[in-house]
């Protein structure tokens, strides 16, 4: 990556879900394609491929980005979290648990992008109100649910995360 000449094919090293990963990619390969095709992490879904639908959202250094609007080579040296990286072993992430409990999804296509967007929201704002949740997911299109159950699921996730945090605080005391 320290090459000073423009190249059509490059080596890229990215941390994905805590693991260092490498691949040789075409310059035009998107981060989403790197994840799906080279690293076989097909949980990241590609919908519109030009930044409108939000289904390819992943976390880049902790904040949500559209992985279709980023070249794989731009992720060099950065840290990426995909939907595969949300659960801790068999223990679901609060956003997964909350959305499961509230039946937040139907076809599941938008699910990964929404889960990661919600995870970043709760990280930044552990007690969001409904308006904050709606604002946070406003860039993620769902064609099934009408969003009500998704909003419910994310609000439930915030409760679960708080309960877990309280539980840990209790253990420590």
């Amino acid at each position: 990556m320290s090459a000073t000449e423009p190249r059509t094919e490059l080596d890229v090293a990215v941390e994905v879900n805590g693991e260092p990963r490498r691949a040789r990619v075409e310059a035009r390969r998107s981060l989403a394609e790197l994840l799906r095709d080279d690293l076989e992490l097909t949980g990241t879904h590609l919908g519109c491929e030009h930044g409108v639908c939000g289904s390819c959202t992943v976390l880049l250094d902790g904040v949500p980005v559209r992985s279709c609007l980023m070249l794989a080579v731009q992720a060099e040296g950065r840290s990426v979290v995909t939907v595969e990286g949300l659960a801790d072993g068999d223990r679901l992430h609060p956003v997964q648990q909350g959305c499961l409990e509230r039946h937040s999804f139907q076809c599941g296509f938008c699910t990964p992008g929404i889960l990661l967007t919600a995870a970043a929201l709760l990280d930044a704002q552990p007690e969001p109100d409904e308006a904050a949740v709606r604002e946070a997911i406003s860039g993620n299109i769902c064609r099934c649910t009408g969003y009500e159950s998704i909003v419910d699921g994310i609000l439930r996730a915030a409760e679960i995360a708080r309960e877990a945090a309280d539980g840990h605080a209790g253990e420590g005391a």
Partner: peptide
């Protein structure tokens, strides 16, 4: 991959960018 092929370079200085 949807874009047409291109070459990519990421210089570490403004001079490098202008040179490219």
């Amino acid at each position: 991959m949807k874009p047409a092929p291109f070459a990519y370079v990421a210089p570490d200085s403004v001079e490098g960018v202008v040179g490219a």
